[in-house]
């Protein structure tokens, strides 16, 4: 391994670790759930990305497949992280959490459970509950 590659990989890993630490600090300092999610996505994207990139420089894309597996980990992480964040924010909003704003005003747009007309899953569960209760009664 050449010296330049070594230095590059060293810098990637340490900067990635620093971004992870920043996301942890943001998790503690931010005022509400939604802003904390922004801080969390810091570690999910650039933190994890730079650490794994630095490790790929170390391992190389050789025949032992370590580098390929590392890249697969990164790809899976980049595909799943936004879906989890989206589900988290939507669940928090539908549960009645309101985003914090700097001036204390309510946000310019928001979402209630009633606004989602096509939530078939919830409707069917309610129907199920009613039917299930009747089934248990007899």
């Amino acid at each position: 391994m050449t010296l330049a590659l070594e230095i590059l990989s060293w810098a990637c890993i340490v900067v990635g670790g620093a971004f992870c630490l920043l996301s942890g600090i943001g998790l503690m300092r931010m005022p509400d759930v939604f802003t904390r999610m922004h801080a969390a996505s810091l570690g999910d994207t650039l933190g994890a990305g730079l650490i794994i990139l630095g490790l790929v420089f170390q391992a190389g894309l050789g025949a032992d497949l370590v580098g390929v597996k590392l890249l697969l980990i990164l790809v899976f992480l980049l595909f799943t992280a936004p879906v989890a964040t989206h589900a988290l924010s939507k669940a928090a909003l539908l549960d009645g959490q309101r985003p914090w704003t700097a001036d204390g005003q309510p946000p310019e747009a928001t979402l209630e459970r009633g606004d989602i007309a096509d939530d078939d899953f919830l409707e069917e569960i309610r129907k199920d509950r009613a039917g299930g209760g009747a089934g248990r009664a007899d």
């Binding site: 890993i13 670790g17 620093a18 630490l21 996301s23 942890g24 503690m28 570690g43 650490i51 630095g54």
Partner: peptide, 13 residues
């Protein structure tokens, strides 16, 4: 070094 950063983040989380 990177492991220590990650461990510190885990403590904060």
């Amino acid at each position: 070094v990177a492991s220590l950063f990650v461990l510190a983040t885990m403590v904060l989380a």
